[in-house]
Amino acid sequence: MADIPKIELRGVSKSFGAKAVLRDVSFAVAPGEAFTIIGGSGSGKSVTLKCILGLMEADAGKIFVDGEEITAMKPAERDRVRAKFGMLFQGGALFDSLSVWRNVTFALTQGRLKGGGELRKIAEENLERVGLGAEVLDLRPSELSGGMQKRVALARAIAHRPEIVFFDEPTTGLDPIRADIINKLIVELVRDLGITAVAITHDMQSVEKISDRVAMLYDGAIVWTGPTADLRHSGNSHVDQFVEGRSDGPAE
């Protein structure tokens, strides 16, 4: 049983009109592993996550979660599998019409306004986990700073105790210190909650801090996969160019 990957993609392709965004993408993520996909803007990183989450349909290929093929599932079954996922969106994507604590507990009630006291306690616990106190519970997302919004979004993504959490550019838009706080939080959450993590980012510091293994997407295809430790001597010119942040190289 231990051999079954938590998530596996086999030959996944996706196009928008004539533009191929993903070409024959295959990879597997082991349970409890922290996996990062790197790549430039428009390389297909976000689309990969959205296909796994079922927010988009892949044109071809198969996607497995815990050995179950989700690409062949009916909507109701897919809902069941989706409960295993949490996602931290790039801009936080907090619901601005709801208070912080309603945001954090949204998945637990599926958006219904019920279960006051008990849910507030759950919200408080999850906020504590990301380093926020009870004073933010009743604030609106717009009253928080960017870094705090990201933490609330992180608390929301883990509140229903998902087995897998996706992080979409977790440090984008934050100053280096706050970015480091978020990186540390991610590492802690993965360790303490036994989460399988998949992150997409172009922040090299973040990659090296949070991930066990890395894949590089270039122009919709995976050009390199390996342990994070090998990133700086991968022998792949695309990876070298990306890691060193050079404008000259195979990618223009």
Binding site: K50, L53, L55, D79, G86, M87, F89, A93, A107, A157
Partner: peptide, 9 residues
């Protein structure tokens, strides 16, 4: 998208 990932239609 966030709403969908939070199991709400």
């Amino acid at each position: 998208d966030a709403m969908v990932t939070l199991r709400t239609d």
